[in-house]
């Protein structure tokens, strides 16, 4: 029985890689997500709905299509991939960094949406009150807007993380399914289901997936509650 529950080294690698990929995807997309959330919530410019549509595209497109587009654009021969390699020596295709990029792209719409909604919910009267008290627009954003929409930002980060943990189609298309390099939880489970006698491994990873998802959800609830109760700035 204990044997049945013990993870093999390959499975551990998949779990660890998944966590690293998802965390990287979440943190790397946060600055841009925040900027675009703010732009969509507050900005008034030509092409706003177009930008909105482009950001939401990965949510609507089949993940395989997104993965294929990434392969075309960011592959070693792709225009962006070639540029990144020539100038910075960065290779994304078939590396874990590529998996993080795919996950970030897939989770991005969810993050931007949550941040945008929370910024739109901030009472602008509070911001003008802060302005009359001498706070410049940047300070108003830092000490009023940001703390007030922090619960929404946390929710967006968790959503992005959860999406990244479960990402399959775009990842496998863009960076394939290489054990130890790009094999994340979902692709590992998929591999197990494709070989005879892989049921036990698939089940173990499935249980871990469930545990991580529940933990992430619980954590986000907890943080949102703490932040909602008291956000102290001084």
């Amino acid at each position: 029985m204990t044997d049945w529950l013990t993870l093999s080294p390959e499975e551990w690698t998949a779990v660890r890689l998944s966590l690293i990929v998802a965390t990287t995807a979440m943190l790397a997309s946060l600055p841009l997500g925040l900027a675009l959330g703010l732009l969509l919530a507050r900005g008034r410019f030509w092409g706003k709905s177009l930008l909105d549509a482009v950001i939401h595209m990965p949510l609507i497109l089949p993940p395989v299509v997104t993965g294929y587009l990434l392969l075309i654009g960011f592959g070693r021969r792709g225009p962006i991939g070639e540029f990144l390699y020539d100038w910075f020596g960065i290779v994304l295709s078939f590396r874990w960094t590529g998996a993080a990029l795919a996950c970030a792209v897939m989770g991005f719409p969810l993050m931007v949406r949550a941040i945008r909604l929370s910024i739109e919910a901030v009472d602008r009267k509070l911001e003008s009150a802060a302005g009359t008290l001498g706070a410049s627009p940047i300070w108003v954003f830092l000490v009023v807007t940001l703390p007030l929409c922090l619960p929404g930002i946390i929710a967006g980060m968790i959503l992005c993380f959860a999406k990244a943990m479960g990402e399959f189609g775009a990842t496998i298309t863009f960076v394939s399914n290489i054990p130890g390099e790009t094999q994340t939880l979902p692709t590992a489970i998929y591999t197990f289901t494709q070989v005879p006698g892989g049921d036990a491994g698939a089940m173990r990873l499935t249980l871990i997936s469930i545990a991580i998802s529940v933990a992430a959800l619980f954590l986000s609830e907890l943080m949102a509650r703490i932040v909602g109760r008291r956000i102290a700035v001084e």
């Binding site: 509070l126 009150a129 009359t132 008290l133 956000i231 700035v233």
Partner: peptide
């Protein structure tokens, strides 16, 4: 923010956080 004019609004507009 550079006028140094205090403004008391009809609804107090205190910062809830």
């Amino acid at each position: 923010h550079r006028r140094r004019i205090g403004y008391v609004f009809q609804e107090a507009r205190l910062f809830p956080h």
